[in-house]
Amino acid sequence: MKHSYLTALILIAIIAVIAVGSQIIGIRLYDRIATNLLISLVLVVGLQTFMGNSGLLSFAHIGFMGLGAYTSAVLTIPAQMKGMALPDLYEFMKVVEISPLLAMLAAGVVAALVAAIVAYPLMRLSDAAAVITSFALLVVLYTVMNNWSALTNGPRTLFGLPKTTEMPIAAIVAAVVVLIALAFKESRTGKLLRASREDEVAAAALGANIPHLRWRAFILAAFIAGIGGALWGHFITSFAPKAFYLKETFLIITMLVIGGANTVTGAVAGTVLITVAYEGLRGTEATLNAASSGSGQVIGLTEIVLALAMIAVMIVRPGGLFPNREIGHILTRSRRKKEKTA
């Protein structure tokens, strides 16, 4: 158990370094990138709680992030702006205006509730059927967000969210989420779930109620995704449903998989690595576009490079950078080894 505390300490230290470092440098752009990174971290670690422990790939995560973002938006857009931002909103909701922190919690709860209802039948499925239905779930959530004009302003951009997500809040939420993920991994549910990941039949024979365990993890992941969505919404302040679809799904799955889905350390490492690579590539793309102004825009280059990287990592290290041990565990082991040899 001792190495779990070490892991928590190291991961939180990394978050603190990112947060404090970007403040010290004091460049507006870096501040934005670092905040973005921390929000991605919330989402990726959230996905890890389900995917890492159950071993099932879930595509629906970004859909729950969208639910959270819209819930928080509807609850926090100032009453006098609602007429303009959401002209078709139901009457009784027009007067609602609560504090962003409370709204963030509500966003998590709404996402978790929706997940609890829709996911119960889905968790009985395994392997490919589970992956396919989670993909279908993403499409359902997207379709609803795209068309429920009264609450989401339809496919148009929703604007007017108060900008309340600053660096400290993002860092605190990210740190709390990392702690929750580590605690969940070591909890009874987490351990049984990981047993079912390794061998479904054996775990079931030992009395693990696998669908129920997966269901709990899925709800937790959706709750974190909802919180992450609210955090992101108040950071970006205006968005449209297409922000919660395949491109973003690809991005967070890349982060988690390259880092290593089975460990929280992997989730953190992957997020940091891919964010840096992504920003670097996007910068290159922008430079290329500026150089060849007008004739043929460069689009999609970033995604192509990331896709190649992902295939390469899967071939060389199918478990990602941190396939099964957390950073604290690796450190204590290597120290113990040294003591033995000395």
């Binding site: 490919a128 998989v257 460069v298 999609g300 190649l308």
Partner: peptide
Amino acid sequence: VTAVLITSFAFSNLLQNAALL
């Protein structure tokens, strides 16, 4: 299994973005 799901998802993304580019 997850590794293959992910590589085929990545390959799909690769082809789509190649068409974009």
